[in-house]
Design a protein around this nucleic acid. Structure first.
Lengths: 108, 108
DNA sequence: TATGATTACTACGACAGATGAAGTAATCAA
DNA sequence: TTGATTACTTCATCTGTCGTAGTAATCATA
């Protein structure tokens, strides 16, 4: 059974997807989401960073720093095994969600 | 461009769909949603009734009473032309939403 | 060399929708 | 007469999103 929050929380899934093939950081993830969706979806900065906090608290991502002698320090993230498992669950859930919502869509 | 709330607010769309073919009331709509989704989605009572309030405030539905000399009085709802227009918009939006979210789904 | 754009965040507060808990009130079956 | 079902309503809380604003560094350009 789907909860309503399923529908709400796909930002987390998008972020996890972006970390599947390697670590990244906020600004880069944000840009990549823009590009991937051809500007159709732009995640707000505050949404993005509060998602990071939540995801880390849940153990789905880990943050770390890199040695950078220039610029403002970036916070890098990588996905954890727990995060991967969560991501996979969300993918399954999304399929069901689509099926459900599609039943309420009428074509004209 | 999709806002994040797009993803959130599909309860309203489901309710409007249920009113497309004629007026109905809370409990009936609730049951119909259950049945249509084969129990995969069950809308909480409070969610349903607060959605009614919102939809009516927005002019998407109208409430009225029927003469019923028995039982507890039901509040019936019908969809308005504005509500229909909103519903159609949401259907279009849903297609885009699916395309967007699907780009973050990996098959394993 | 000063200005603005871009990168890369952080903090704070407000808001809306979802939901849990609880209550009311009527009908109807066992 | 007890409990299940119908049919809501009220209230309070929680979560995620988002607007506003601030900090701080780099880099293009005029």
């Amino acid at each position: 059974m789907i909860s309503s929050d399923v529908i709400r929380g796909y930002n987390d899934t998008m972020i996890l997807y972006m970390l599947l093939d390697g670590e990244s950081y906020g600004y880069e993830i944000s840009k990549n989401i823009r590009q991937l969706t051809q500007e159709k979806y732009v995640m707000k900065e505050t949404t993005l960073y509060s998602a990071f906090t939540r995801l880390e608290k849940n153990g789905y991502i880990e943050s770390f720093y890199r040695d950078e002698s220039f610029g403002k320090r970036r916070t890098y993230y990588r996905i954890t095994p727990l995060g991967l498992a969560y991501y996979k669950e969300k993918c399954e859930e999304w399929k069901v969600t689509q099926q459900v919502v599609n039943q309420f869509i009428r074509e004209w």
